[in-house]
């Protein structure tokens, strides 16, 4: 497994829709293009929401994994 150079981590565990997306958008905004953001969320809807959000914004969903109830997303800024 390669070690990713994560610029910012967003801990959205325990937050409901739409805060995982809103918090991630706020975290992504100041970063340079190509920077990686890691998001942790427990909202089951986030699994589909982050795919849709990346399509809408043009950011790249690099990784999507689930461990127990925690969903992890790695997003590369456009």
């Amino acid at each position: 497994m390669t070690v990713l150079d994560i610029a910012v981590q967003v801990d959205a565990r325990g937050l409901s829709c739409p805060m995982p997306i809103v918090r991630t958008a706020q975290a992504v905004r100041p970063l340079a293009a190509g920077a990686l953001v890691e998001v942790l969320a427990t909202d089951p809807g986030s699994q589909r929401d982050f795919v849709a959000w990346c399509r809408a914004t043009g950011h790249d969903l690099v990784e999507q994994t689930t461990e127990g109830t925690v969903h992890r997303f790695v997003i590369r800024r456009k």
């Binding site: 829709c17 739409p18 997306i21 809103v22 958008a25 706020q26 959000w53 914004t57």
Partner: peptide
């Protein structure tokens, strides 16, 4: 406000 914040977060 849910829709407005999500739309803005999605670049709309």
């Amino acid at each position: 406000l849910i829709l407005a914040s999500t739309a803005a977060a999605s670049g709309t």
